[in-house]
């Protein structure tokens, strides 16, 4: 009986070891390909696919994002601009036709709907001077939500002294860009800008982000704008508010203390705040 029990336990052990070692190499499902994104925030083309690859090859796969202004939004922008010009000239009929064309392409585009309602109601709407060209990087009017990505690109410039810009990740309300430092003690800079509804929403977002960087937390002034400096592990961050937009500048320390990166983060933030 004892010998039988020992043999049985040995069988269980061998079975367990077989399970532990596994009979085949693990495969991982990864998403790979390219997403083409319009500056208005819409996905123009999703060329991503799921692939099963051996785990040793997983790091070779990722999804890149390319940002363009799609033909529809290029057309919408110019139609909207023409409508605003007609409004400024007092040509309400042309303005209404152009606004109808805009709304046919994009029902939620800027002030087109409200302006058309005003014209239909017998009023003369005030022309929108912020422009309809989606490639514009004009500063958004405070407390007024506008095309998110086009308004946020100025916070992720192609050139920041001391950093090499990488790809952009964008969604309808936020934009993120990584930079590789060319010198110093940081090995990564990530700038994140998020469009909120108004300044109050921006402050709420900043308060949320602050919780992720609780160490050495302090209020700072970035140019004329109010902001926050904090640390989490090896990450140092400066977050500031620009009207309804929240901008986070995060540096990762290669070695040493993250607190030492405060000056570098403040410098980048000040350059973005203008």
């Amino acid at each position: 009986m004892k010998r039988l029990a020992s043999a049985f336990l040995a069988v269980i052990l061998v079975t367990s070891l077989l399970g532990t070692a596994g009979c085949k190499q693990r495969t991982v499902t990864v998403k790979t390909g390219e997403i083409v994104l319009c500056t208005a925030g819409e996905v123009v083309e999703d060329k991503t696919t799921d692939m099963k690859v051996p785990e040793k090859d997983v790091a070779k796969y990722s999804v890149t994002t390319r940002i363009i202004t799609c033909p529809d939004h290029q057309n919408v922008g110019s139609l909207y601009d023409e409508a605003q010009k007609a409004l400024a000239a007092g040509d309400l009929k042309t303005a209404a036709d152009k606004l109808k064309a805009v709304l046919a392409l994009n029902p939620g585009y800027k002030n087109a709907s409200s302006q058309l309602n005003e014209i239909n109601g017998g009023k003369k709407p005030t022309p929108d001077t912020t422009g309809g060209s989606t490639g514009s990087t004009t500063t958004p009017t405070p407390d007024e939500p506008t095309d998110a990505v086009s308004n946020l690109v100025k916070y992720v410039p192609d050139t920041i002294a001391g950093y090499s810009a990488q790809g952009i990740i964008a969604d309808p309300a936020s934009i993120t860009r990584n930079y590789i430092p060319t010198s110093g003690n940081a090995d990564q800079l990530v700038i994140f800008a998020e469009q909120t509804v108004d300044a109050k929403g921006a402050q709420a977002t900043l308060d949320t982000l602050k919780q992720s960087y609780p160490t050495s937390g302090a209020a700072v002034k970035v140019g004329t704008k109010s902001g926050y400096f904090g640390i989490r592990d090896s990450f140092a961050v400066v977050i500031f508010i620009d009207g309804p937009v929240v901008v986070s500048v995060e540096l990762h320390a290669k070695t040493g203390k993250a607190a030492d990166l405060k000056d570098a983060a403040m410098k980048v933030a000040a350059a973005l705040a203008g």
Partner: peptide, 26 residues
Amino acid sequence: AGLAFPALEGTAKGLRTSGAAFEASF
């Protein structure tokens, strides 16, 4: 025998250093 069968599915998402999005399930 149960040790050899699938038990959980993990899904990881994040950003690569290049800024490219990473997504994998295993």
